[in-house]
Amino acid sequence: MLRCLVQDHPKQWEEVLTRAEFAYNSMPNRSTGKSPFYIVYTKAPNLAIDIAILPKCKSLAAESFSGSYTDMLTEVRNHILKSNQRYKEFADHHRRQRIFSIGDLVMVRIRKERFPPGTYSKLMRRKIGPIPITAKINDNAYIVDLPADYNMSSTFNVSDIWAYSPPDDAVVINSSSESSSTEAGED
Results as ranks from 00 to 15, higher is better:
residue 3 R to H: 07
residue 4 C to Y: 04
residue 5 L to I: 09
residue 6 V to H: 00
residue 8 D to C: 01
residue 9 H to S: 07
residue 10 P to I: 11
residue 13 W to L: 02
residue 14 E to Q: 15
residue 19 R to W: 14
residue 30 R to H: 11
residue 31 S to M: 06
residue 32 T to S: 03
residue 32 T to D: 07
residue 32 T to A: 05
residue 33 G to N: 06
residue 35 S to E: 01
residue 36 P to H: 00
residue 36 P to L: 11
residue 36 P to T: 10
residue 38 Y to C: 09
residue 39 I to K: 03
residue 40 V to G: 02
residue 42 T to C: 04
residue 42 T to W: 07
residue 43 K to Y: 04
residue 44 A to L: 15
residue 44 A to G: 15
residue 46 N to S: 02
residue 48 A to D: 15
residue 48 A to W: 15
residue 48 A to Y: 01
residue 50 D to A: 06
residue 53 I to T: 01
residue 54 L to V: 02
residue 60 L to E: 14
residue 60 L to S: 10
residue 61 A to L: 12
residue 68 S to C: 12
residue 69 Y to R: 03
residue 73 L to D: 09
residue 76 V to D: 00
residue 77 R to I: 10
residue 83 S to R: 15
residue 83 S to M: 13
residue 83 S to L: 15
residue 85 Q to H: 11
residue 86 R to D: 08
residue 86 R to A: 08
residue 86 R to E: 15
residue 87 Y to H: 15
residue 89 E to Q: 09
residue 91 A to C: 12
residue 91 A to F: 04
residue 92 D to H: 08
residue 95 R to E: 02
residue 97 Q to C: 12
residue 97 Q to S: 08
residue 97 Q to P: 03
residue 101 S to Y: 06
residue 102 I to Q: 09
residue 102 I to H: 01
residue 103 G to H: 00
residue 104 D to F: 03
residue 110 I to F: 13
residue 111 R to E: 14
residue 112 K to T: 07
residue 112 K to C: 06
residue 112 K to Y: 05
residue 112 K to M: 13
residue 114 R to I: 01
residue 114 R to T: 05
residue 115 F to G: 05
residue 115 F to M: 08
residue 118 G to H: 07
residue 119 T to K: 03
residue 121 S to W: 06
residue 122 K to T: 10
residue 122 K to I: 07
residue 126 R to S: 12
residue 126 R to N: 08
residue 126 R to Y: 04
residue 127 K to E: 11
residue 128 I to R: 00
residue 129 G to S: 05
residue 133 I to Y: 05
residue 137 I to S: 04
residue 137 I to K: 12
residue 137 I to Q: 14
residue 138 N to F: 04
residue 142 Y to T: 13
residue 142 Y to G: 06
residue 143 I to K: 03
residue 143 I to E: 15
residue 144 V to L: 05
residue 148 A to R: 14
residue 148 A to W: 10
residue 149 D to K: 13
residue 152 M to A: 07
residue 152 M to F: 02
residue 154 S to N: 13
residue 157 N to K: 02
residue 161 I to E: 01
residue 162 W to A: 05
residue 163 A to I: 13
residue 163 A to N: 06
residue 164 Y to E: 00
residue 165 S to N: 04
residue 166 P to I: 04
residue 167 P to D: 04
residue 169 D to R: 09
residue 170 A to R: 13
residue 171 V to K: 13
residue 171 V to E: 14
residue 172 V to N: 03
residue 173 I to T: 05
residue 175 S to C: 08
residue 176 S to D: 04
residue 176 S to R: 06
residue 178 E to K: 06
residue 185 G to D: 14
residue 186 E to F: 11
